[in-house]
Structure formats: C-alpha cells, structure tokens
Computed example of a mutant assay.
Amino acid sequence: MSGAELTVEAVTLTAGAHHLVRDVSLTARPGEVVGLVGPNGSGKSSLLRTVYRVLRPDAGSVRVDGADAWTLPVRRLSRTVAAVVQDAGADFDLTVREVVSMGRTPHKRLLDGDSAEDASIVAWALDAVDATALADRSFDRLSGGERQRVLIARALAQQPALLVLDEPTNHLDIRHQLEVLGLLRQLPATVLVALHDLNLAAYYCDRLYVLCDGAVTASGPPGEVLTAELLADVYGVAAEVGVHPRTGAAQVSFLPGAPAARAGAGVGDSAGP
C-alpha cells in the first residue's frame, strides 16, 4: 500500500437546477490525511462520490496520479481507490471474514481462490480495526458500529493508494473512533475523509477543506482554518477556538445560547449530504 496524489480541479455537480458542488478544487498528497468538514447539506458526500466514481461531475476533473479517474479501467481503479461510504447496508449473507476478503477481489483473476497472502492481509485488516473476534460471525447480525469497522477492514484489505471515507466514525464508540483515525494517520495511503467532529478533524487531519453550500469556504492546516469567525459564518454557532494544552491541536469549544447568524443561510440548501 502506497499513496497516490489526488487532484480535484474545479468540480461542479448539479441535480436539476441545484448545485450540489460548485467549482471545488482540492489536493491530497501521498501519506496525507485530508479532511472535509462542513454542515449537513454542504456537499461533502456529493464531492466524495465524484472521487470514487459514483457521480460524474458536470464540469471539472478528478485525477489520481495524473490520470483521469473517470477514464481508468474498472480493475485499475479498484486497485487504486477504496471507499467507505455512509449507509452501506447490511445485506451480506456472509461471515465477517468473507466480507473483508471481498477487498482482495481486485487483486485476483476470475475464479482465483484466496492465497496465503490474501489470508494474511485479511487477518491484518481485521486486527487493525479490532474485529478479529468477529471473523466467523454473520455480518448481517452485527451492530452498526461493528459493521462499520468491518467495512473499514474491507477497504484496508483492498490495499488502495487512495482511501476515501465518508463519516467513518459514525456508529463507533469513542475508543474505536480514536483507533480508526489513528490507524488512518499511520497508513502510507493518501486519505480523504469527511468528518463531523471538528476536534477529531483538527487532531488527525493534516489539512482541512471547509465546504459550505457546495463550495470551499476555507482550506489549510486545522489551526489556521478553524476560527470562531468561520464557525459562526459556516455553522451558525458561537464557539471559542484554543490550543489543546497537551496535543497542541486546535480545540473547539461550543458556547450555549442562541446560534450565531450564518452569512448566506438559506442559499443552496439543497447541496446534498
């Protein structure tokens, strides 16, 4: 597993008359963890879907190591990009080990069985997300958090150069949130991840892109991007932003009371999840 360079250039995505994503550009370099943050409806999931090739952009391009992601052969794309999506469902009448083994499919020829190497990689992926004890259980009988960890393990078993994750900490307890995000930081792969928790994003991401109404409002290191002014403008909340005394990361504290007015509120409210 090694990293790939992701370049999103002026991507626009529409649904009828509504802009889901508007002229968005971003980069993610090998070994980086790049975070997408923003309120519901800001376009995070829609943008990610253009990267892992579910929604074709109306304008702009998505390139992986310089190659247009939308022209790559499916097999090459599957070896390069893995995605962990929201609401993936639980309609797998398979064991956990079998689900994670699906991540090895792009690396095998038709009708090939699992090799010793495949089995070793699957075992590593299960262990990486603390799911070894679940290996022989039926996937469709797991809790939401357990399923999420298994789907992350499946993506890890794919050994992608680019790992795209849409709210991977959903359903996870605090311990597993920290373990999963800590794992992402250790991977040599390039990671693009959408997160709601700004403090987790500040600690684990190298750079952030803040989306609002489908467009990039701010980008850069978390300590530069996360300001009280930005949170008031983008999220409509009052907050204080300081520095964590032990980690040195930006730390957001939300203040009770009436939310701050958000500039542009009500504009582009159909910008997708």
Rank of each mutant, 00 (worst) to 15 (best):
185 R>W: 00
259 P>G: 15
197 D>P: 13
173 D>P: 10
243 V>S: 13
232 A>P: 07
198 L>H: 08
241 V>S: 07
224 E>D: 14
255 L>Q: 12
253 S>Q: 10
184 L>A: 10
235 Y>V: 13
177 Q>P: 08
211 L>E: 10
179 E>Q: 14
246 R>S: 12
180 V>Y: 00
252 V>D: 02
247 T>V: 10
243 V>L: 06
217 T>M: 06
176 H>P: 08
190 T>W: 06
252 V>P: 02
196 H>T: 05
173 D>N: 11
238 A>M: 00
259 P>C: 09
218 A>Y: 01
227 T>N: 03
259 P>W: 04
256 P>R: 11
203 Y>M: 13
254 F>V: 15
256 P>S: 11
252 V>W: 02
217 T>R: 15
191 V>H: 06
206 D>A: 14
225 V>N: 09
219 S>K: 11
245 P>I: 07
213 D>I: 00
178 L>Q: 13
246 R>D: 10
214 G>A: 13
187 L>M: 06
253 S>N: 02
257 G>R: 05
199 N>H: 01
199 N>T: 02
228 A>M: 02
227 T>H: 02
221 P>C: 09
246 R>P: 00
185 R>A: 12
185 R>E: 04
243 V>W: 01
255 L>E: 07
221 P>D: 06
224 E>H: 13
245 P>A: 05
218 A>T: 08
220 G>S: 09
231 L>R: 11
193 V>Y: 01
247 T>G: 08
198 L>T: 04
214 G>H: 11
258 A>C: 04
239 A>Q: 08
228 A>E: 14
205 C>K: 10
198 L>D: 01
257 G>I: 04
189 A>E: 07
